[in-house]
């Protein structure tokens, strides 16, 4: 479970103060599929990154399974990002100098890559339909294929939490649906907690939780957003 308590984040662009989050409090249950909606600049990506320990909050706390991320040591935060969280970014964020297999293995490079791990990366790429693109570099892959590599990278960790920032933002509808298909399968098969930042509510299904942010504040409920139910 993710518990967010009175979270604020202020950063600066030059001398301009930007208050990205202004006291957000919510809970994201373990094993849920959660969307964060909101207009541009509402703070949704900032909230996502704070859940992934990619940044430090100005105040407040983000706790994952009872551990306050801000209080983790640098090593534990690295370990958390490497082992517990899978990231999927809008612009894929693959390393251009590595092929598909290399990009999937990136999180574990500093610790060394075992043959078993390499084999598993290959299997994951085949699983997302990239069996014939193993040695291709990002510039040799389409947008959808790149995003599938990013998903395979996230899956290699067997993560407890997947954080996706506009994962379909640069994809056409068909490819976007395909990407969401993989995320859904991960959620169902491994009970992974998935949090997706998006502008597009077409991919919301029954039982998903929805958080709506505006101007750095949660619009739809203190406790944990709204559970979407079309009935």
């Amino acid at each position: 479970m993710i518990e967010i308590q009175d979270l604020t984040k202020t950063h600066y662009r030059g001398e301009t103060e930007v208050r990205a989050l202004r006291g957000v409090t919510c809970r994201i249950p373990k094993g849920s599929f959660t969307f964060i909606f909101g207009p541009s600049g509402s703070g949704k990506s900032t909230l996502l990154y704070l859940m992934g320990a990619l940044d430090n909050p100005t105040s407040g706390a983000v706790s994952v399974n009872g551990r306050n991320l801000a209080e983790l040591s640098a090593r534990d935060r690295d370990e958390y990002r490497r082992g517990d969280v899978g990231f999927v970014f809008q612009s894929f964020n693959l390393l251009k100098n590595l092929d598909a297999v290399g990009n999937v293995l990136v999180p574990f490079m500093p610790k060394g890559i075992s043959p078993d791990m390499r084999q598993r990366a290959v299997e994951l790429l085949k699983h997302v339909g990239l069996g014939n693109r193993l040695d291709h570099r990002p510039n040799q892959l389409s947008g959808g294929e790149q995003q599938r590599v990013a998903i395979a990278r996230a899956l290699l960790k067997n993560p407890a939490l997947v954080l996706a920032d506009e994962p379909t933002g640069e994809l056409d509808s068909e490819t976007g649906a395909e990407v969401f298909g993989y995320l859904r399968r991960l959620h169902v098969e491994q009970q992974t907690t998935v949090v997706v930042v998006s502008h597009d509510d077409r991919y919301v299904t029954d039982g998903d939780r929805v958080l709506e942010l505006q101007d750095g504040q949660l619009r739809n409920g203190e406790a944990g957003g709204t559970e979407r139910n079309e009935d």
Partner: peptide, 18 residues
Amino acid sequence: IEFGILKANGWSKYDVLK
């Protein structure tokens, strides 16, 4: 951005330094 990606994927700052 590449270093950001690496760190997001669990690379420590010393790994980046290395």
